[in-house]
Simulated assay, not measured.
Amino acid sequence: MRDSFSTFHPVVNFTYFTTVILFSMFFMHPIFQGIALTSAFTYSVSIKGKKGMKFNLFYLLPMLLLMAALNPVFNHAGVTILFYARDGNPVTLESILYGIASAAMFVSVILWFSCYNEVMTSDKFIYLFGRIIPALSLIFSMVLRFVPRYTEQIKVISNAQKCIGRDVSQGNIIQRAKNGIKILSIMTTWALENAIETADSMRSRGYGLPGRTSFSIFTFDNRDKIMFSIIFGLIIAVLTGAAAGENTIRFFPSIKHADITVYSLLVYTAYFILCMMPVIINIREAIRWKHIESRI
C-alpha cells in the first residue's frame, strides 16, 4: 500500500511521530498500550508489507513474550499471589501485568521508530532542523541512515569475498574468523572514507554557513494545515484526559485504575484516531484511487 501520510509536510510527520512515541513511552494504562501497539503494528505492516510482517512476528513478538515472562521472575512485588516458584519466591498478578505493560511499551516504541525511519527521511529532518542546528541535524540524519545503508554495503562486501572463497561461511572455524575480521576491516575502512567524503562534500557546499539558502520541495499547503489542526486537536483531547487521570494506573502494591466512564471512552477514541491516523489516511486514499480507476 502506498503511504499517503508520508506525502504530508515534514512538520506534520514529525509532530505526529514525536507525539505517539512520547505517549507510548509514558502512558502505561493497558488500554492506551493496546491501542498504541495495535496501531504501530498495523502501520508498520501497511508501509513495509511482508517484510514488516515477518520482522514483527518473528522478532518483536518473541521479544514481547520474553520480556513479559521475565518480569515476574525477577519482580515479586504485589499482593495478589498466584503461586510460588520452586525457589520459594511468589509470582504475583501485579508483576505479570506490569511485565506485559512494559513489554508492550517497549515494542510499541520500536515499531513507531521503525515507521519514523520510513517516513522521516534525511532531507525532511535537515529541512526542519538544518537552520537551527545544522551540524547536529546532519549527524543525526547520517545516523538514521546508518543501519539500512551499512547493512546493504556489508552484503555487497560479503558477496564479493564469497566469490574468492573468503566468506564467513567458508573454511574451518579459524579461517571463518579471519574472513569475518577481514570483512569487518573492509567495512570499517569504507565507513570512514564515506564519512570523510560526506563531510568534505557538505563543507564545499557551504553547509551551516550563515546566510546560506537551500532549495526545498516542501510547502505547507491547506491540506497540511487541516491535518495539523486535526492532529493538534486530538493531542489536546488526549492530554486533557491524561490531566484528568484517565491514563493513570497503579500496579503496585495492588492494581488500581480510574473507572471507565463515557468521558474515558471519548479519550480512548481520540487516542485511537490519533494513533491510527496514518492508516486511516492510507485507506482513504486507496479507496479514492480505486474509485477513480473504476470511472476510467
Rank of each mutant, 00 (worst) to 15 (best):
N56G: 15
N247H: 14
K178I: 03
V45Y: 07
I21W: 11
Q33H: 04
Y127A: 01
S4K: 11
I164K: 02
L93P: 03
I186P: 02
I47V: 13
M202D: 10
T269L: 14
I47N: 10
F125E: 11
L66T: 15
M277T: 13
L265H: 02
P134E: 05
I181E: 00
L22N: 08
W112N: 14
V45I: 12
F228I: 03
D3Q: 09
A160T: 00
S6K: 14
A40K: 08
S169P: 04
K51V: 01
K51A: 11
I287Y: 08
G88S: 08
I287P: 03
I296E: 05
I47Y: 13
F140I: 13
G34D: 13
L60I: 15
F106N: 03
I31K: 04
R131F: 03
P62V: 07
F83R: 05
I96P: 06
I230P: 05
M63H: 03
V109P: 13
F58I: 12
V11D: 01
E293N: 11
G78Y: 05
H291Y: 12
N282K: 06
I292A: 14
D224C: 06
Y16G: 05
R284G: 15
I236G: 04
V45E: 04
A270C: 10
M187A: 06
M105E: 10
F8I: 04
N247M: 04
S216R: 02
V79Q: 09
T189F: 11
V119P: 04
P278F: 04
R284P: 00
T18S: 14
K155T: 07
L64S: 08
I296V: 06
S141Y: 12
S216P: 02
I196W: 07
G208T: 00
D3N: 05
R223Y: 03
F146D: 03
G99P: 06
A69H: 06
N282H: 08
S158F: 00
A286N: 09
P72F: 06
I181Y: 00
L192R: 05
A68P: 07
F55N: 12
F106G: 01
S114A: 14
I196K: 12
T19R: 11
M53A: 15
G206F: 08
F218W: 04
D221V: 01
D87Y: 09
A286K: 05
S201V: 02
S216A: 05
A270Y: 07
I186D: 02
F83C: 04
K54V: 12
F252N: 03
D87H: 07
E285D: 01
D224Y: 01
V267M: 12
M53L: 09
R2Q: 13
S95T: 04
V119Y: 11
L266D: 05
L239A: 09
S39P: 08
F8E: 08
E246R: 09
P30T: 02
V262T: 12
G52E: 13
F272S: 15
T188W: 09
V119A: 10
E293K: 15
L111E: 12
G206I: 02
N56M: 08
F32A: 07
E285K: 10
K50S: 05
F55D: 14
I35C: 10
T18Y: 08
Y150F: 12
T151Y: 13
I226K: 13
A40W: 06
L265V: 04
Y43H: 12
D221W: 04
M67Y: 09
L97P: 06
A69C: 10
R145M: 14
G208M: 07
A244R: 02
V238E: 06
